[in-house]
Measured scan of single mutants.
Amino acid sequence: DESNKPILLPNESQSFERSVQLLDQIPSYDTHKIAVLYVGEGQSNSELAILSNEHGSYRYTEFLTGLGRLIELKDCQPDKVYLGGLDVCGEDGQFTYCWHDDIMQAVFHIATLMPTKDVDKHRCDKKRHLGNDFVSIVYNDSGEDFKLGTIKGQFNFVHVIVTPLDYECNLVSLQCRKDMEGLVDTSVAKIVSDRNLPFVARQMALHANMASQVHHSRSNPTDIYPSKWIARLRHIKRLRQRICEEAAYSNPSLPLVHPPSHSKAPAQTPAEPTPGYEVGQRKRLISSVEDFTE
């Protein structure tokens, strides 16, 4: 099969070098950035008060330690540790928490760990991170309901609301924008112990962030949302095809390698009803078989 044979790379090609550099910018793992907010007593309706908090309760602090690993920003190499735009020179604080497994990295933009500057009256330095995160974990210690939209931002799609209760338990629920209701189930609340709260809140936030990324990708319907490693695979396959075309153009005697095509017509299947918005969006999480067989 010609399409699977190794090909020689061009010795000097600026377009090839640019493509390789672009490939280096696509990590081999999925990345997520999640905002974390603490809401104190009497702050449920005040964005400024929430963003001005420099610490929270003892249970909130224990919750943070379970979310991930504490890292010092100045020691991080952005090409190895995903920071979601946090500055490593102290502009966004000294520490944050991050978490990773074999296929993804997540960083938490924690408002109480970011510096509260006197010259920044409206807390814009914090909002440029927190307001651009799709998902926020809100530790609501106010005793009042927290409403979506209290923290203004164009991309605040989903809130994971943590409400501490007695007996070391917590109520965990989801809020989302109306255009996200087909992807996020907000109907079920959970009672979770303090011990298990970081794991549950983190998983709910990661799932909500993946759904938000799919939702946000609708602005470019021709580019369905893939995982990062599938995006790398697609980029490599496009690069291979372009090299083959350039080689055939410079030397017409060489065969032009095309991806294999299936001449056999697909079997006719009964027509199915058109899937609704929710089903269609969830299918976009699934990769096409052509990603692996071309």
Results as ranks from 00 to 15, higher is better:
residue 222 T to P: 06
residue 118 D to E: 12
residue 33 K to I: 05
residue 159 H to E: 15
residue 243 I to Y: 15
residue 110 I to S: 03
residue 29 Y to A: 04
residue 9 L to A: 15
residue 32 H to P: 03
residue 269 T to A: 09
residue 281 Q to P: 13
residue 56 G to C: 02
residue 111 A to K: 03
residue 44 S to F: 03
residue 146 F to P: 01
residue 164 P to T: 00
residue 176 C to A: 14
residue 138 V to P: 00
residue 245 E to Y: 09
residue 247 A to L: 08
residue 136 S to L: 03
residue 269 T to S: 10
residue 70 L to M: 10
residue 270 P to V: 12
residue 248 A to D: 12
residue 239 L to V: 06
residue 231 A to W: 10
residue 57 S to K: 01
residue 113 L to M: 06
residue 148 L to Y: 14
residue 285 L to D: 15
residue 162 V to A: 02
residue 32 H to K: 01
residue 1 D to Q: 10
residue 245 E to S: 05
residue 154 Q to T: 15
residue 255 P to Y: 07
residue 286 I to D: 15
residue 283 K to N: 13
residue 109 H to G: 02
residue 62 E to S: 07
residue 172 V to F: 00
residue 240 R to G: 14
residue 46 S to P: 02
residue 76 C to T: 08
residue 91 E to R: 15
residue 168 E to H: 11
residue 168 E to T: 03
residue 162 V to L: 05
residue 213 Q to C: 08
residue 266 P to T: 12
residue 289 V to C: 11
residue 210 M to N: 01
residue 174 L to D: 00
residue 260 P to R: 08
residue 25 Q to R: 12
residue 109 H to K: 04
residue 226 P to A: 06
residue 145 D to N: 07
residue 111 A to Y: 07
residue 15 S to P: 11
residue 50 I to C: 03
residue 102 D to R: 03
residue 227 S to I: 15
residue 131 G to T: 15
residue 100 H to K: 15
residue 3 S to F: 05
residue 209 N to H: 07
residue 193 S to F: 01
residue 174 L to P: 00
residue 68 G to I: 05
residue 121 K to A: 09
residue 153 G to T: 04
residue 3 S to E: 14
residue 122 H to K: 11
residue 26 I to V: 09
residue 233 L to N: 12
residue 108 F to A: 01
residue 119 V to W: 11
residue 254 L to W: 13
residue 132 N to Q: 15
residue 95 F to I: 05
residue 172 V to Q: 02
residue 237 K to R: 09
residue 13 S to N: 11
residue 24 D to W: 03
residue 89 C to E: 13
residue 30 D to I: 04
residue 272 E to S: 09
residue 246 E to H: 05
residue 278 E to M: 07
residue 263 S to R: 09
residue 260 P to M: 10
residue 245 E to F: 09
residue 116 T to P: 05
residue 270 P to W: 09
residue 19 S to N: 12
residue 147 K to C: 10
residue 57 S to T: 03
residue 24 D to F: 02
residue 204 M to I: 06
residue 157 F to I: 05
residue 86 L to N: 15
residue 100 H to A: 14
residue 244 C to I: 12
residue 124 C to H: 15
residue 44 S to Y: 03
residue 51 L to A: 02
residue 196 N to M: 04
residue 54 E to I: 04
residue 106 A to W: 08
residue 252 P to V: 10
residue 193 S to L: 01
residue 7 I to Y: 10
residue 80 K to T: 06
residue 27 P to G: 05
residue 233 L to Q: 13
residue 86 L to D: 15
residue 93 G to T: 11
residue 265 A to Y: 08
residue 30 D to T: 07
residue 104 M to C: 14
residue 25 Q to T: 08
residue 224 I to L: 05
residue 13 S to L: 10
residue 124 C to R: 15
residue 209 N to L: 03
residue 8 L to T: 12
residue 191 I to A: 02
residue 45 N to I: 02
residue 68 G to K: 05
residue 88 V to L: 12
residue 216 H to D: 04
residue 54 E to D: 08
residue 114 M to G: 03
residue 91 E to C: 08
residue 259 P to Q: 14
residue 104 M to P: 02
residue 147 K to H: 12
residue 72 E to S: 11
residue 127 K to I: 14
residue 20 V to T: 09
residue 144 E to L: 05
residue 30 D to Q: 05
residue 165 L to R: 02
residue 127 K to C: 04
residue 200 V to N: 01
residue 234 R to V: 03
residue 178 K to P: 14
residue 6 P to C: 08
residue 277 Y to Q: 14
residue 106 A to T: 14
residue 261 S to V: 15
residue 60 Y to P: 01
residue 155 F to P: 12
residue 112 T to A: 02
residue 161 I to R: 01
residue 148 L to Q: 13
residue 247 A to K: 06
residue 204 M to D: 03
residue 55 H to Y: 15
residue 232 R to N: 11
residue 211 A to V: 06
residue 214 V to E: 02
residue 267 A to W: 07
residue 197 L to Q: 00
residue 165 L to T: 02
residue 77 Q to F: 08
residue 78 P to K: 12
residue 270 P to G: 11
residue 233 L to K: 10
residue 148 L to I: 14
residue 232 R to W: 06
residue 7 I to M: 08
residue 13 S to Q: 09
residue 16 F to H: 05
residue 140 N to C: 00
residue 10 P to C: 15
residue 71 I to V: 10
residue 222 T to E: 13
residue 51 L to W: 04
residue 115 P to R: 06
residue 176 C to M: 03
residue 147 K to R: 10
residue 145 D to Y: 05
residue 74 K to E: 06
residue 205 A to K: 00
residue 97 Y to E: 03
residue 118 D to F: 11
residue 26 I to S: 06
residue 80 K to I: 05
residue 67 L to D: 00
residue 118 D to R: 15
residue 122 H to V: 10
residue 239 L to W: 06
residue 215 H to P: 01
residue 249 Y to V: 12
residue 57 S to I: 01
residue 14 Q to K: 10
residue 90 G to M: 05
residue 260 P to Y: 12
residue 189 A to N: 06
residue 41 E to R: 08
residue 141 D to P: 00
residue 240 R to Y: 12
residue 222 T to N: 10
residue 276 G to W: 05
residue 138 V to L: 02
residue 280 G to V: 08
residue 251 N to P: 06
residue 225 Y to D: 13
residue 283 K to G: 11
residue 188 V to L: 11
residue 228 K to H: 09
residue 117 K to T: 12
residue 210 M to W: 02
residue 43 Q to V: 02
residue 72 E to I: 05
residue 58 Y to M: 09
residue 269 T to P: 13
residue 242 R to C: 15
residue 31 T to H: 08
residue 28 S to I: 12
residue 168 E to V: 01
residue 285 L to I: 09
residue 197 L to F: 00
residue 248 A to C: 10
residue 228 K to I: 09
residue 206 L to W: 03
residue 33 K to R: 09
residue 112 T to Y: 01
residue 272 E to K: 08
residue 293 T to R: 06
residue 278 E to C: 09
residue 93 G to D: 07
residue 168 E to W: 03
residue 119 V to A: 11
residue 229 W to P: 06
residue 186 T to F: 04
residue 33 K to Q: 13
residue 88 V to N: 11
residue 278 E to A: 09
residue 273 P to Q: 08
residue 208 A to K: 01
residue 189 A to H: 12
residue 64 L to H: 01
residue 189 A to G: 07
residue 97 Y to R: 08
residue 184 V to D: 02
residue 121 K to F: 09
residue 74 K to R: 10
residue 72 E to Y: 09
residue 226 P to H: 04
residue 222 T to K: 14
residue 270 P to M: 11
residue 143 G to Y: 04
residue 156 N to K: 02
residue 155 F to D: 08
residue 2 E to Y: 08
residue 130 L to Y: 04
residue 224 I to N: 08
residue 31 T to D: 03
residue 121 K to P: 15
residue 83 L to A: 14
residue 104 M to Q: 14
residue 137 I to H: 00
residue 66 G to H: 03
residue 73 L to H: 13
residue 198 P to H: 01
residue 5 K to Y: 14
residue 288 S to H: 09
residue 15 S to E: 14
residue 219 S to V: 08
residue 12 E to R: 04
residue 99 W to R: 02
residue 209 N to A: 11
residue 197 L to V: 12
residue 145 D to G: 05
residue 184 V to P: 02
residue 51 L to I: 06
residue 39 V to P: 00
residue 242 R to P: 12
residue 25 Q to C: 08
residue 26 I to W: 05
residue 134 F to T: 02
residue 260 P to F: 11
residue 218 R to S: 08
residue 108 F to E: 01
residue 3 S to A: 07
residue 14 Q to M: 10
residue 62 E to C: 07
residue 180 M to F: 13
residue 252 P to F: 09
residue 144 E to K: 06
residue 178 K to N: 09
residue 135 V to M: 00
residue 143 G to E: 03
residue 129 H to L: 11
residue 87 D to Y: 02
residue 117 K to M: 09
residue 141 D to N: 08
residue 90 G to Y: 05
residue 166 D to P: 08
residue 147 K to W: 05
residue 200 V to Y: 04
residue 196 N to T: 05
residue 280 G to Q: 09
residue 239 L to A: 08
residue 158 V to M: 05
residue 292 F to L: 14
residue 163 T to E: 10
residue 3 S to R: 08
residue 5 K to A: 15
residue 93 G to N: 13
residue 250 S to F: 10
residue 74 K to C: 08
residue 193 S to M: 02
residue 112 T to W: 01
